[in-house]
């Protein structure tokens, strides 16, 4: 995932790379994800969230739908 100054530069990047524009998230949402994902990464207990846990994490920061579902196979038609 990449960082951009604005939606306009996202669009330019997508055109240049011939890829569809996909969801954007805010810096605040990204920080929430970073804390949930990594705050205990240096501990013995740390692990990557399971698929159902990932979906809950995304929903908790307002990211819902097939794109954010780690088990989705319908994301192509949904976007």
């Amino acid at each position: 995932m990449l960082l951009f100054r604005s939606e306009e530069t996202v669009d330019h990047w997508c055109q240049a790379h011939r890829v569809p524009r996909r969801p954007l998230i805010t810096l605040g949402q990204l920080w929430q994800l970073a804390v949930i994902w990594y705050a205990n990464r240096l501990t013995a207990e740390s692990r990557r969230p399971a698929a159902d846990e990932m979906a809950s994490v995304f929903a908790a920061v307002g990211l819902e739908g097939p794109f954010w579902d780690p088990q989705a196979d319908t994301w192509r038609s949904a976007i």
Partner: peptide
């Protein structure tokens, strides 16, 4: 303990699955 607000957006090119 928090991200300082900044004018920017983050683009996810690949779906979570």
């Amino acid at each position: 303990g928090r991200a300082v607000p900044q004018e920017c957006v983050i683009h996810f090119a690949v779906p979570a699955a």
